[in-house]
């Protein structure tokens, strides 16, 4: 029984993870400029990763290995936005104009 629930949860988490990563990918492809792309890159992706890692943790079961998953999650949460910030800032300082409504799509 508990296994069935676990399997179910795993399936749900994996699906959610895939979904948010898909959103992230779509965003990166669709959005008009580097700043708005950085949004989805940092956020949707982070969440997608979070769900997927949760699924992994569930699959592995409790133990030192699962701690690593948590650690992993922590790293992703800390580093991903920082990276996105670094990229956005780089773009900003290089003089990339943020896109506003009404501009052409790039």
């Amino acid at each position: 029984m508990i296994t069935t629930v676990r399997i179910g949860l795993i399936a749900v988490f994996v699906a959610l993870g895939l979904f948010f990563t898909f959103v992230s990918a779509t965003g990166v492809i669709r959005l008009p400029d580097v700043f708005s792309r950085a949004h989805t890159a940092s956020q949707a992706d982070t969440l997608g990763a979070g769900f997927a890692l949760a699924a992994v943790a569930l699959t592995i079961g409790w133990g030192p290995t699962a701690v690593k998953t948590v650690l992993l999650l922590f790293f992703i949460f800390v580093t991903n936005p920082t990276a996105a910030h670094a990229i956005a800032r780089a773009a900003y300082e290089e003089g990339v104009e943020p896109w506003t409504k009404g501009d052409e799509r790039r």
């Binding site: 700043f35 949004h39 991903n80 936005p81 996105a84 910030h85 956005a88 800032r89 300082e93």
Partner: peptide, 17 residues
């Protein structure tokens, strides 16, 4: 840093500088 990162993590906002 924490604030900036939190802002970034929240979708829709992104700390540029």
């Amino acid at each position: 840093t924490t604030l900036a990162n939190s802002i970034t993590l929240t979708p829709g906002t992104l700390t540029v500088k």
